[in-house]
């Protein structure tokens, strides 16, 4: 299902093939890592929103407080 397209930009020759075992392994590693990064960003944003709610201030007021 996971294929790689390789293009030699000097000759214009294109090849499409399935990932080999090591490429597939790397692909899965990358996928997990990306998901973790995205999850961290979402979690951070969520934590921030929850904290603001608990404090009863909005983001602009928080900026003012920290300025």
């Amino acid at each position: 299902m996971n294929s790689i397209k390789e293009v030699n930009v000097q000759t214009g020759v294109e090849k499409e093939r399935e990932m080999n075992a090591s490429e597939l392994k790397q692909y899965e590693i990358d996928k997990i890592k990306t998901e973790a990064i995205q999850a961290a960003i979402v979690a951070k944003a969520q934590a921030k929103a929850e904290l603001l709610e608990r404090l009863g201030i909005n983001a602009d007021e928080a900026k003012l407080l920290l300025a």
Binding site: N2, S3, I4, K5, E6, V7, Q10, T11, E16, Y27
Partner: peptide, 9 residues
């Protein structure tokens, strides 16, 4: 196309 596109050479 595919899941990876590589521009080589």
């Amino acid at each position: 196309t595919g899941s990876t596109l590589t521009l080589s050479s």
